[in-house]
Simulated assay, not measured.
Amino acid sequence: MTHKFETQRLFLRFFELSDAKVVQELAGNEEVARTTLSIPYPYPDGAAEKWIETVRQSSEKGDSYAFAIIKKDDGALIGNMSMGVSSKHKRAELAYWIGKPFWGQGYATEAARRIVQFGFEDLELNRIFAAAMTKNPGSYKVMTKIGMKEEGTFPQHVLKWGVYEDLVFYGMMQSEYLKNSALEFKDNF
């Protein structure tokens, strides 16, 4: 099973230690960190290297997969598309961030579609879900665009920078994915 993917405008590959400086710069932007639960601000030196090593080990075990999102045209690393897997329940949580200079260009949607395909077709998951802070509509618009349905809001579900934030959850079952894929295939012919 390969862990390097291609879309129309992007390559998705595992992170390398040489990506650490760009990860720290992009993820360390205050606006990116503000709506992403696990990103610290300010982003400490050495944290990106530690994170890259951690996600590499997790992907080797099949617990999670973190893909660097790379623009084909110039090779720029622009973000992260991750999937934390629960093998026991055959489900995964999709999570992502995009560097601020690359917001609003459809890169997250394009990368998410490919990683959802990987989850359902290669990993044979039954369900993929994602959550976003309600104050981050850009994130949950991605979820809608890839075919996920809103499943509910959890009030004050997480504590970020001293404030309790509401999370909105979206999800999709493999059966829905396969139905949507069949319809898209049919529409293209």
Rank of each mutant, 00 (worst) to 15 (best):
M1K: 13
M1D: 12
H3Y: 14
F11V: 11
F11C: 13
L12K: 07
R13I: 08
R13F: 10
R13L: 09
F14Q: 15
F15G: 12
L17N: 14
L17R: 12
S18E: 13
D19M: 02
A20Q: 05
A20F: 06
A20C: 10
K21V: 15
V23W: 01
E25N: 11
L26N: 01
L26R: 03
A27R: 01
G28S: 03
E30H: 08
E31D: 14
V32Y: 02
T36R: 00
L37A: 07
S38M: 11
P40H: 04
Y43K: 01
P44E: 06
D45M: 12
G46T: 02
A47C: 10
A47L: 11
E49S: 08
E49V: 08
K50E: 15
K50T: 15
E53K: 15
E53C: 11
R56F: 14
S58C: 14
S58P: 06
E60I: 14
K61W: 12
Y65M: 11
Y65R: 05
I69L: 11
I69S: 08
K72F: 07
D73H: 15
D73Y: 12
I78A: 02
G79K: 06
G79M: 08
M81K: 05
S82M: 13
M83L: 15
M83H: 05
M83G: 09
M83I: 08
K88T: 13
K88P: 02
L94F: 06
G99R: 07
G99L: 07
F102N: 06
Q105F: 05
Y107I: 00
I115S: 07
I115E: 10
V116G: 04
V116D: 03
Q117A: 13
F118V: 12
F118D: 01
F120Y: 03
D122W: 08
E124D: 15
E124F: 10
L125K: 03
R127M: 08
I128L: 12
F129E: 13
A130R: 02
A131N: 11
A132W: 03
M133Q: 14
T134W: 07
K135Y: 06
K135H: 10
S139D: 00
S139E: 00
Y140V: 02
K141W: 09
M143P: 05
M143I: 02
T144V: 14
K145L: 06
I146L: 05
G147V: 06
M148Y: 07
K149G: 14
K149D: 10
E150P: 09
E151G: 09
G152F: 07
G152A: 01
T153I: 14
T153D: 04
F154R: 12
P155H: 09
P155N: 08
P155C: 07
K160N: 00
W161T: 14
G162V: 02
G162D: 05
G162N: 03
Y164A: 13
L167R: 01
F169P: 03
F169Q: 11
Y170Q: 02
Y170L: 03
M172A: 05
M173N: 13
M173R: 08
Q174I: 03
S175A: 13
Y177T: 03
L178E: 13
N180E: 10
N180H: 04
A182L: 08
K186D: 12
